[in-house]
Structure formats: structure tokens, C-alpha cells
Deep mutational scan, measured.
Amino acid sequence: MFYPNSPQTSPQLTQIPYGQQYAMMQRQIQQPYHPFATTEPQARLYPYHYQGPIQQEQGGFITQQSTAASPQYVQMRVTPVDQSIMSGYPNQTANGSSSSSFNYNIHPQQQQQQQQQQQQLRHHAMPVGSVPLQDDRYRKQLIVNYLAPDVTSTDLHELFSRFGELDGARIIYDKQTNMSKGYGFVYFCHAEDAKEAVERMSGYEFHGKWLKVGYSTNPLNIVPSNSSPYVHAGSRGAAG
């Protein structure tokens, strides 16, 4: 039997160049792979992502010199942007860049009308829970959420009447099932009393439920100042 490094198959040491006398086997001759043993700084910083320098080929596509990437890492192929796409944008300079302001050559009167329309939209648009300043009635009506099913309009009136005089209180019921929808409205005579009720009743436990109280901004629920107070009856038909 002959071994790869046996004296019968191995040459004389004098015939082997210096430095390879003890590297006779194939696994010894093959050098191990060192990912950080390279002179390129990109490979030292990113050993798993770097795959060699990027070269520009004919046709405008950018390719990489090395083989496919590892399945664990996804390499994105980048193509140059066609400058003709950006030619339609206004205020574009000769080098292809555009300024931040756009001039669509709008007539001054049209621009003024658009600004007025935007101001009107901001004036009428009102986020949930906010209180408008032009109508004091919005500051007097509250919406009470997360009410228990057994709470009546009379219970709601008695709960909030300790903060001040009320114009009314009612629970909203479903017309088909005649069941409470879980929320109601309270109408105060003074805005200061309503503000105190919002601050003190939010998070209050009532009939096993934690109440959420806020201003009601729905104009359909506003009680006119010259109208008669609501009837605080315990029956659902009268309260709904």
C-alpha cells in the first residue's frame, strides 16, 4: 500500500523548493479562506456584503464582478436614472436638479381664491374633541361614552347635575331594538360647569363602566337656548 506522503511516492527534499517541504498533501497545500485577509477597505468593513468592485458596462447597466450573493443577503441591482424623465418638472436647472418651490404660472386672482378656499376649509374642519370658538353652545354640550346598558337618562342627569344647572341629558337608544347604544349627551347651562365635568368625570366608574367624557361637536345635538329642557323620564321611549 502506498500513501500520498510515503517515501516511495514523495520526491527528495532537495528537489522541493524551500517553504513547501512540509506541504505535501493536497489539504495542506490548499490555503484556508480568510474573509478579512484583503487589501480593499470595503471588504474589511463589510465582509458579507462586499463582492468586489463595481464596473460600468456598455448599455448603462451596473453589474458586479463577483458571483451571486448568499441567500441570506439580498443584493440590489441599481440602474442609472434617465434624465429625460425629470425634464417635465418646473424650475429645473441645466444640471438636472430642481428647486423646492414650484411655479405653475397661476393667475394671481386664482391663487388668492385657492388660498381663501383653504382658509375656509381649515375654519370649518374641526378635529374630534375640539371646541370651536365662534359658538358658545359647543362648550356646553358633552358626550358621555361607555355607558352601561342599564343607565337611563334620569341617572345621567343626576350624575352630572352636581356640577351645575343642566339644560338636559339623554341616552341614545336603538330604534329597532330599543336598547341603549352605550353613549349619551349632557347639556349644561354654563360653559364653566361643562369644563369642570369634563375634567372630573373622564375615567369615572359608573355602573361598572369607566366613562369617557368630552365635548360634543355635532351641531345636530345642540340644544337651542330658547327651547324647553328635555324630559328626564326613566322610560326608554321618552328618553330616546
Rank of each mutant, 00 (worst) to 15 (best):
E40L: 09
I16V: 10
Q21P: 04
M76H: 08
V198N: 05
Q26Y: 15
Y89H: 07
T14P: 08
Q72D: 04
Y146H: 00
N5R: 06
H34Y: 14
S10V: 11
L166R: 06
G214E: 14
Q65W: 13
A238G: 12
Y22M: 02
R139E: 15
Q119Y: 08
Q75W: 15
P17E: 01
C189L: 06
R236T: 02
Q28P: 10
R77G: 06
V213L: 03
W210G: 05
Y22S: 13
S235N: 07
Y173C: 11
Y3I: 07
G88F: 15
M201G: 06
V223E: 04
I85G: 07
I16R: 02
Q113W: 10
S153M: 01
G129A: 08
I85R: 04
I171W: 12
Q112S: 09
M86I: 11
G240L: 07
Q92C: 15
Q28S: 14
A23C: 06
Q28C: 03
N226V: 04
G208C: 05
Y138A: 07
F102S: 03
I85E: 06
F185G: 01
K209H: 07
P32L: 11
Y173N: 09
Q30T: 15
T177S: 04
Y104I: 02
L13S: 07
A94V: 06
A37G: 01
D155F: 00
S235K: 13
E199H: 05
Y33W: 15
L133F: 05
Y22Q: 14
F102T: 02
Y215D: 09
Y187N: 11
E158D: 04
I172Q: 04
N103W: 03
S202V: 08
Q110S: 09
Q134C: 07
Q15H: 00
D167K: 02
K175C: 03
P229S: 08
R122V: 11
T93D: 09
S98L: 02
T9N: 10
G164P: 11
W210I: 14
R200C: 13
D135H: 09
Q8D: 14
Q64T: 09
T39R: 08
W210Y: 03
Q109A: 02
D82H: 06
L147M: 00
A23W: 13
T217G: 05
Q65C: 07
K175E: 03
V78M: 15
A191P: 02
P53G: 12
P219G: 07
I62P: 03
P90Q: 03
H123T: 01
M179E: 14
Q134V: 01
D82N: 12
A148P: 03
R27F: 15
Q30R: 01
A94R: 07
N145G: 06
D155C: 02
P17T: 05
K212M: 03
P17S: 13
Y3M: 02
K195G: 08
L166M: 06
S70N: 00
Q65K: 10
V144R: 08
Q141E: 00
T93H: 01
V128K: 13
T67R: 03
Q8I: 11
P108Q: 07
S228Y: 12
Q134H: 14
S97K: 10
R139N: 11
Q115D: 12
A239K: 12
Q56K: 13
L121C: 06
F185M: 14
P219N: 07
Y48G: 04
N145F: 03
R200E: 06
P229L: 12
C189E: 11
Q28F: 10
Y104E: 15
E158T: 05
G52L: 14
T39C: 13
G208Y: 01
F206V: 06
G184N: 12
N105S: 07
Q26D: 15
G240P: 03
P108V: 04
P35D: 08
L156S: 12
S228E: 15
A239Y: 07
P229R: 08
P47N: 07
Y183D: 13
I222D: 03
G59P: 15
A68M: 05
P229M: 04
N91V: 12
Y146D: 02
P132Q: 15
Q56Y: 02
Y146S: 09
A23V: 06
S227I: 05
S66T: 12
I222A: 03
Q75G: 07
K140E: 09
L45F: 00
Q42H: 08
Q20H: 04
Y204E: 07
N145C: 11
I16H: 02
S98A: 12
L142E: 06
K175P: 07
S153K: 14
R200Q: 06
Y33I: 11
F61C: 12
S216W: 13
T93P: 07
L156N: 14
S98W: 13
S6V: 06
G19A: 06
A37S: 08
V81M: 00
R170K: 00
N178F: 14
T39K: 05
Q109S: 11
